[in-house]
């Protein structure tokens, strides 16, 4: 079954064309990376699929699990209900800082539970247990009673993933989930996403700034540049030469800081041998 189908999407912000005729299709249970430099349109695309932004008038349509999210620049009717199936993980976590971690995760039931009850802030024991189990899965159950603003960035992001688990989302859209995290937290967050993908069969589309994470976690990668899809295929085909080719001078930005440093060092150390060394590096990451 097709999880996401984006057809001929155009989006303009003022004079700036953020998306140019973007068409993308994801199958159920896939884990796909969306890479590209800052401003390449990754976030814009994800926000469109989540139904948080609409495209230009009369330009393109988006279906998720066969149901319309938006078409020709108008949100589909019943998109609020449809959003239940789509869990979104944001770069800045988007938790409510003054509420406890548990309450934040319980927000996942809002789309399903009866409104009269949830509007009064009443959650059943069953719902609470479900939230606690989700927190257990992402490994932060012991922080459930704390205000979410007291958690580290990585822990907050894992709480956000727990929220999508409670939601019972069949699709997770992660918009730069690790862009503001340190490497150790980044790995934990990516591991959480990979587990949910593998164990629950949840389709995951994750936009990333750093190519090495895409290669390590996602079998397939979609690469964007200036609002266009410039690559869509197996992640192992992403070699430094290829990145150089599609991103030009921007390609250095797509590697993690550690790798940028290594690349710079290897360049200084041995100019002629540089391409080969880089190729090894990427392959080494892919093999891990």
């Amino acid at each position: 079954m097709v999880a996401i189908s984006v057809r001929n999407l155009d989006k303009t912000f003022g004079r700036n064309k953020a998306l140019k005729n973007v068409s993308v299709e994801l199958d159920e249970k896939e884990m796909v990376a969306l890479i590209g430099a800052s401003g390449s349109g990754k976030s814009t695309l994800i926000r469109h699929i989540a139904g948080l932004v609409v495209s230009d008038k009369g330009r393109g349509e988006i279906n998720v699990f066969g149901t319309a999210i938006q078409k020709d620049g108008t949100l589909a009717k019943g998109v609020r209900k449809h959003r239940r199936e789509i869990g979104v993980v944001f770069q800045q976590f988007n938790l409510v800082g003054r509420l406890t971690v548990l309450t934040n995760v319980l927000m996942g039931v809002l789309g399903v539970a009866p409104s009269w009850r949830t509007l009064l802030g009443i959650f059943t024991n069953e719902e609470k247990q479900k939230a606690m189990n989700a927190l257990g899965r992402v490994g932060i159950a012991s922080h459930a009673a704390q205000r979410s603003s007291n958690l580290s960035g990585g822990q907050q992001q894992r709480a956000a993933i727990a929220r999508t688990i409670v939601q019972g989302a069949k699709l997770i859209l992660a918009d730069e989930p690790i862009a503001s995290l340190d490497p150790a937290s980044s790995r934990k967050v990516m591991d959480n996403l990979a587990h949910v993908n593998r164990e629950d069969g949840v389709t995951v589309l994750v936009s990333l700034h750093q190519v090495d994470y895409a290669i390590k976690y996602c079998p397939r990668t979609i690469a964007m540049r200036e609002g266009e899809v410039v690559f869509d295929g197996p992640s192992h085909r992403l070699t430094p030469e290829f990145l150089q080719e599609i991103y030009g001078a921007d390609s250095i930005e797509l590697l993690s800081p550690e790798e940028q440093r290594r690349k710079a060092e290897s360049k200084r150390a041995d100019q002629p041998a540089q391409p080969a060394a880089d190729g090894d590096l990427v392959l080494a990451y892919a093999a891990r």
Partner: peptide, 14 residues
């Protein structure tokens, strides 16, 4: 945070 809540399928009052 509001966007985060909206993304769970919550309604405007939520």
């Amino acid at each position: 945070p509001i966007e985060g809540i909206r993304a769970t399928g919550a309604n405007a009052l939520h």
